[in-house]
Write a protein that binds this DNA or RNA. Structure first.
Length: 303
DNA sequence: AAAAAATTCAACCGCTCCCTA
DNA sequence: CTAGGGAGCGGTTGAATTTTT
């Protein structure tokens, strides 16, 4: 129960691996109060942890809908591609893979993909160093802008789904986004199991979910991310003055590139248009579509 | 079988950003 | 305008685990 010993702890602040008991305390607190306001968590719960540690534990392990274990081919492609586009901006990358945490993606990149890519493209170390020679290299402000747009779109998506409450097209969204961590005891149970019998790497793509509402949560997040990607794609396209149909032939790269070189704040995607995309059936496919469009050149040797 | 080396990944640290007063 | 503080991000660490010798 003690992994890494505390090194230079300020008095009374615990460090190192979390115990199931601590997890239970944290989860039950968040069930009651919701995530956020991390500052008050240690005081309110009596946990001898700093707020940072609590937030990290929640966002990386206890939060529902987190997929752990092996990365599949599609996820791997996504990561490689997004890393090439965005650099080591793991949070931004993770926003395209909502079931994965930035920490997990970062770890996976550092332990698996970096090596893999080096093997395939020896001497091409630039990716590791933030893409310094890539044609897609972007200034900090451009990257920030891109992230902001992405975030704004996520917010818009959330707002849209809330607006739908009177005429629910996707009823699951309302019921689950209100309280998505409703029954996190499942998470804890799984953790406890792990602790009890220290099993052999429970890594078969387990999705940590939340009991009865879990499928809904996963579904919601998937839909959300799919839509989100679509939104980014569409607005990029509108900046490119392209029709939706034509846009299907564009690569994500080219749109990002054009977008970032010609940001146009007046461009707006009509609400009806967004909603149409939001509730269309094929949205779940869009991540794949986007990624498959321009992966070939960079990573063809990999798969 | 045992020791050494390599790998993994949960968690920490330091920094920046952003919000509020 | 600015100072203070919380939240979030990316780099790094190092114990635990796995693989190799």
């Amino acid at each position: 129960m003690m992994g890494r010993p505390p090194c230079c702890d300020k008095i009374g602040v615990k460090k190192g691996p979390w115990t199931p008991e601590e997890d239970i305390v944290l989860v039950s607190y968040i069930q009651e109060h919701g995530p956020g306001n991390w500052r008050s968590v240690p005081n309110s719960t009596g946990l001898m942890r700093c707020s940072k540690s609590c937030r990290l534990r929640w966002t990386n392990y206890l939060r529902p809908g987190i997929k752990r274990g092996n990365f599949n081919d599609h996820e791997e492609k996504m990561i490689i591609h997004l890393q090439a586009l965005l650099g080591n901006r793991w949070a931004a990358i993770a926003s395209y893979l909502p079931q994965r945490t930035d920490n997990d993606i970062k770890n996976y990149w550092n332990t698996h993909l970096k090596k893999k890519l080096n093997k395939i493209q020896p001497g091409n170390n630039n990716e590791e160093e933030g893409n310094s020679s890539s044609p897609q290299v972007k200034g900090q402000w451009e990257r920030r802008l891109q992230t902001d747009i992405h975030t704004a779109k996520q917010a818009l998506c959330a707002a849209l789904s809330l607006d739908k409450s009177s005429t629910p097209l996707l009823p699951e969204i309302e019921t689950t986004t209100q309280f998505p961590y409703a029954s996190n005891t499942d998470n804890i149970a799984k953790l406890l199991e792990k602790w009890m019998k220290k099993p052999q790497k429970n890594s078969d793509d387990m999705v940590v979910t939340t009991g009865s509402s879990s499928s809904n949560v996963a579904c919601t997040q998937k839909d959300q991310s799919a839509f989100d990607s679509l939104l980014s794609f569409n607005s990029f396209n509108s900046d490119c003055s392209q029709s939706v149909e034509e846009s299907n032939n564009l690569t994500m790269d080219s749109c990002l590139y054009q977008y970032e070189n010609k940001p146009n704040h007046e461009t707006q995607v009509p609400l009806m248009f967004l909603e149409k995309w939001l509730f269309e059936d094929g949205n779940a496919q869009c991540n794949e579509d986007i990624m498959n469009m321009s992966l070939q050149e960079n990573t063809s040797g990999l798969f």
